[in-house]
Each structure stands twice: as C-alpha cells, then as structure tokens.
Amino acid sequence: MNLEIEDLRKVIDNRKHSTVVLDEVQLRIGSGELVSIVGPSGCGKTTLLEIIAGLQSKTEGSILIDQVPIEKSSANRAIVFQQYALFPWLTVQKNIQYGPRIRGVNAPERNRISREYIEMVGLAGFESHYPHELSGGMQQRVALARALANDPDILLLDEPFAALDAQTKENCQQELLYLWEKTGITILFVTHDIGEALFLSDRVFLMTANPGTITECIDVDMARPRRHSVRLDPGFRMKEAQIRSFLYNGVRELGVDQSGGFPVRLAR
C-alpha cells in the first residue's frame, strides 16, 4: 500500500470569507511504514487526516493509493479519533464487530475476528462490557481493535493518546508498536507531542499553520524494537530539539500565538 499526496489544497468557504486550511501538501508513505505528522493545534492535521479518510472533500490536488485516486470513505482506510468514539450502546465485542457487520460478514466469522483482535489488544474478559465501564486506555484499545477488525491497508490515527495520562500513554504507545510489528500495517499518526512522534515513527513530517502545509521531513533512524529508554538517548534528544526549533520558527514567522499546541514565547 503506497499513499501519495500531491499538491493537496483545502479551502473552506464561509459566507463572509474563505480560509485556506491546507496548501501544497506533499506526502508519500510507503507500504508498512509508520510515519507521524507533528504540528501545532489548528495547523490542519485533523483536516488532512479526514480528507485521506474520505470524511472531508479536498479542493485541489490528488490523493493516490497504489496509483488509484481515492474516492469516498472506505473500510481500507481506518481512522481512530482522540475521543475514541466508541458506540456507547454496543459492548466491546459488538463495537469491534461493527465494521464486519455492516459489510455483511456472517456471525461465526465476525466472532472469530472480534476474538482475534480482543486477544491482540489484551482485552480478553471484557467482551460484554460497555464502553463507559472501561478506563480511557482500555477504550482507546477497543477503538484500535475496532479499526483493525476491518483489515485496513492504512490506519489513520488522530492524536489517539492525547487524552490519556502520561503512564497510560506510554503503555499505549508501546502496544501500538507491538500491533504495528505484528500486523505490518501502514500507519499515519497525527500528534502534537514531539517525543511521541519520534518514539513511534520511521519518519516525522512537520506541519506549520496558516495555511497548513508540510515543511520538513525528518528521518528517525533509531533501531527497533524501541523501548521507552530510547527517549534518554542523546540522538533522540537532539532530534527532539531540532524539531522543536523548526516548529518554533514556523510559528514565530507568522507572529501568532499557537499556544494550543506548544508553549510558545514570541521573540522580542
């Protein structure tokens, strides 16, 4: 599965004025890669992800998957949101079976699929729990399992761990790497957490705002499998500092306070 995005542009027209949300976005992701997009809040990361998922329309440019332009949303591009978006009226098992069920997969096969992914995300024993009975980390694991149960070519993750506490977040990151290694799936991960992006990714794309565009691509050549101790590595910390300075400069040039994502102090 290759994802190629060329000169993507997204303009949102309001009654009064139009806003260029994304402009000249170029992005190439190879099969089985895990790449991240890092950028401040409001830079258009989520819009980009939703366009790839087929949930929003693009204004110009092309999005190709294996040389074929994408059309509307489809089960082969699965998206997971920060707020989990589990269906509260379905149990864990039924949530995971949702995708197969709407595709018309029969019951025994659905059960096999949900068993497999419940096992994979370590939620055996919680099949008949409702989402509100689970912790945030468990809910996000269900959301991951639900996305994977569609056997997608690419997994689009929109700040999936942003709402979790630091420790749960690190566990979830480790588990995501485990799932990725086990399934060999392509992952596009959106976050505003530089450390998270570096820890997970093969490559990190940097995005700046107004209009949202991808300005840099940074290769992360650290060995896998990775453990959280890699964060103490001098190479890791240098890359982290490098990305931070890129993003700060991008924000400073614009002279706007993007404090939603980063603690930015404007240069005097």
Binding site: E50, A53, G54, L55, S73, S74, A75, R77, A78, I79, F81, Q83, A85, F87, W89, Y98, G99, R101, I102, R103, R146, A147, N150
Partner: peptide, 25 residues
C-alpha cells in the same frame, strides 16, 4: 458527529448510519 464519522469511515452507507448509529444514539 464523531459517531457518524466513525461509521462512515468504516464504509457504512446512509441507511446503515441511520439504523445502526442515529437511532440508538
């Protein structure tokens, strides 16, 4: 709207969204 987006991203058509998301929600 996140429920609707989630269902749509998994390939649900409008009728399926209506019966399996809108009605229970």
């Amino acid at each position: 709207s996140l429920y609707v987006k989630t269902a749509r991203s998994m390939g649900a058509n409008e009728f399926q969204i209506m019966t399996s998301v809108i009605m229970p929600a």
